[in-house]
Amino acid sequence: MRIGYARVSTVDQSLDMQIDALKEAGCERIYTEKESGAKDDRPELERALDNLREGDILVVYKLDRLARSTVKLIMTLDEIQKKGAEFVSLNDKIDTTTAAGKALFGMLAVFAEFERNVIIERTKAGLEAARARGRVGGRPKTDQKKIEKAIKLYDTQQYTVSEITEMTGVTKATLYRALKERQA
């Protein structure tokens, strides 16, 4: 099955051109959303990926509709490949069902790994320079009392996680991590 994914960054933009191209490319199912590509939380993309089965093909109009960074793109393409599915970007002429498309995918993976390594090197150098000047890196620790309050609010089941984070200032990630630690 050919599954399409179309995305625009704002509510004001139209998906029509992408949807028309995906239909013309033979997509039987099309997932759409109006979310920034910089956001990692894109429910319709997740649904499209979850519904991919071996032999399916995920089709997008352009690569930047799928991901904004090379690293995120490679991670997504790797997920598609692990499911035994293929990938097609109509406008970029990338088709992993062909030998040339698989080769291009391999080159993208090399560049993504290079980009990741450069970022790691820069981060390490920046942290070392900061330590040399007496600075300590990392995020500030969340007050344990705030975390305990967030857990108590969570246990009441009267509030959503978003409401709890707003009331306490504890991030979702910190709350979920604390809940996981409590279960262990």
Rank of each mutant, 00 (worst) to 15 (best):
residue 42 R to P: 07
residue 99 A to D: 12
residue 180 K to Q: 14
residue 15 L to Q: 10
residue 119 I to C: 00
residue 124 K to P: 03
residue 10 T to R: 11
residue 18 Q to R: 05
residue 132 A to G: 02
residue 87 F to W: 01
residue 153 L to V: 09
residue 19 I to S: 06
residue 73 L to P: 01
residue 148 E to L: 14
residue 128 E to R: 05
residue 65 R to I: 07
residue 168 T to M: 09
residue 13 Q to S: 02
residue 48 A to L: 08
residue 61 Y to I: 00
residue 83 K to H: 01
residue 158 Q to L: 15
residue 161 V to N: 02
residue 37 G to W: 13
residue 31 Y to R: 04
residue 110 V to Y: 11
residue 38 A to E: 11
residue 15 L to D: 02
residue 69 S to Y: 01
residue 40 D to G: 15
residue 109 A to N: 08
residue 15 L to Y: 02
residue 39 K to L: 14
residue 83 K to V: 04
residue 69 S to R: 12
residue 1 M to W: 04
residue 111 F to V: 15
residue 60 V to C: 08
residue 120 I to W: 00
residue 3 I to Y: 07
residue 48 A to H: 09
residue 117 N to C: 00
residue 158 Q to I: 09
residue 101 G to H: 11
residue 88 V to K: 10
residue 79 E to F: 08
residue 121 E to Q: 07
residue 63 L to C: 12
residue 183 Q to W: 08
residue 106 G to S: 14
residue 67 A to N: 00
residue 163 E to G: 12
residue 135 R to W: 15
residue 123 T to E: 06
residue 62 K to T: 11
residue 133 R to Y: 05
residue 166 E to I: 09
residue 36 S to R: 08
residue 120 I to K: 03
residue 81 Q to C: 03
residue 155 D to M: 13
residue 56 D to E: 14
residue 76 T to G: 07
residue 176 Y to I: 10
residue 176 Y to H: 13
residue 10 T to E: 14
residue 141 K to V: 07
residue 123 T to D: 03
residue 6 A to W: 05
residue 73 L to Q: 02
residue 93 K to T: 10
residue 23 K to L: 14
residue 24 E to I: 04
residue 108 L to Q: 11
residue 157 Q to W: 09
residue 67 A to F: 04
residue 178 A to M: 11
residue 74 I to L: 11
residue 89 S to E: 02
residue 63 L to K: 12
residue 144 Q to W: 01
residue 35 E to A: 05
residue 31 Y to W: 11
residue 126 G to F: 09
residue 14 S to P: 00
residue 133 R to K: 15
residue 82 K to R: 15
residue 40 D to L: 13
residue 25 A to R: 02
residue 82 K to N: 13
residue 45 L to A: 10
residue 10 T to F: 08
residue 164 I to Y: 01
residue 63 L to R: 10
residue 80 I to C: 00
residue 114 F to G: 03
residue 115 E to G: 00
residue 7 R to E: 10
residue 103 A to V: 14
residue 95 D to H: 08
residue 40 D to F: 14
residue 128 E to M: 05
residue 79 E to A: 12
residue 107 M to H: 02
residue 12 D to Q: 15
